[in-house]
């Protein structure tokens, strides 16, 4: 008997997801975005199966080879297979994008829910600190942090993650303010729930929709920011196969071998496009006001 009851609880949770999925499915652009994103994830996971060559092995006899059957996207100045490098680049981009967003999300949830729940001076201190962070242009902030910490994938994630925290904090705070006015928060206080319990079990779980949307959208902007950092020579360092650093490395040869920038550029564009479409669709699907 208890088993059946547990199962039905599981089913209900699935039903909620099913509803979101149903309304997402109606949005064709969002589904297209989701497909692009899933494709990217699959490419990243199966990079070693898909890539025909080692992305780091030089072939100096075969530099600047135009796209052909042997080298789909051509080869670069070191004779490395561009296609393999783009495929491997998906791993880095995805890693940076997702880790950065998770970092921002966790930081934002902690700071935003504290600010929103406690209000008054606590809120003022946290939100004004976030305003200060937001006043600094994102790239500049990331550059300064990287200048202190040094380059590399880990530090890129950290730098971009710190930069993402203020935006998440704002989103979480506004969601928390909306949830806090509900009587069930007062009811939780009346039964003696601690502030920690109220924040985690009552407030955050009821503010998840905008947080999820913000996280999805942030993956795209983080990937873009990471490639920009690599392009200007901070961030991920060559010879690591990363789209931004590939663009940067190909910069001297744009005039003669335009395909060198074309494919990494297209990869970046497709990824951002897919994630943004999906994020937009997700926001519409999760927003109950837009439901028919």
């Amino acid at each position: 008997m208890p088993d059946i009851m547990e199962n039905s609880a599981e089913l209900k949770k699935q039903n909620q997801l099913l509803e979101v999925w149903k309304s997402l499915k109606k949005n064709r652009l969002a589904v297209f975005g989701l497909c692009l994103t899933i494709l990217l994830i699959l490419v990243a996971i199966f990079a070693d199966v898909i890539a025909p060559y080692d992305p780091y092995s030089n072939d100096l006899a075969n530099t600047f080879c135009y796209p052909c059957r042997a080298h789909l996207f051509g080869t670069d100045n070191m004779g490395r297979d561009q296609f393999s490098r783009v495929v491997y680049g998906a791993r880095i981009s995805l890693l940076v994008g997702i880790s950065t967003s998770l970092f921002g999300m966790i930081g934002g949830i902690i700071l935003g829910s504290i600010a929103g729940y406690y209000g008054s001076h606590t809120e003022t201190v946290i939100m004004r600190a976030m305003d200060i962070f937001m006043a600094i242009p994102g790239t500049l902030l990331a550059m300064s942090i990287m200048a202190v910490l040094g380059q590399g994938v880990g530090n890129t994630i950290l730098a971009l993650g710190i930069g993402a925290v203020p935006r998440f904090t704002r989103v979480v705070r506004s969601a928390v303010l909306g949830v806090k006015g509900n009587e069930y928060i007062e009811a939780a206080q009346a039964i003696g729930a601690s502030s920690f319990r109220i924040i985690t079990k009552y407030i955050v779980v009821n503010s998840l929709a905008p947080i999820i949307v913000q996280t999805t959208m942030n993956v795209a902007s983080a990937i873009l920011a990471a490639t920009s950092l690599s392009f200007i020579g901070l961030g991920v360092q060559p010879p690591t196969a990363e789209w931004g650093s590939m663009l940067s490395a190909a910069r001297p040869y744009i005039r003669d071998y335009g395909f060198l920038v074309l494919y990494p550029g297209l990869a970046i564009m497709a990824t951002i496009f897919g994630l943004n479409l999906f994020g937009d669709g997700l926001r519409d699907a999760l927003d109950p006001r837009l439901k028919n």
Binding site: N182, E183, Y184, E186, A187, A188, Y202, V205, N206
Partner: peptide
């Protein structure tokens, strides 16, 4: 509470 719609946690 007054409002049984907003006084219980929907989750």
């Amino acid at each position: 509470f007054q409002d049984p719609y907003s006084s219980i946690n929907p989750r």
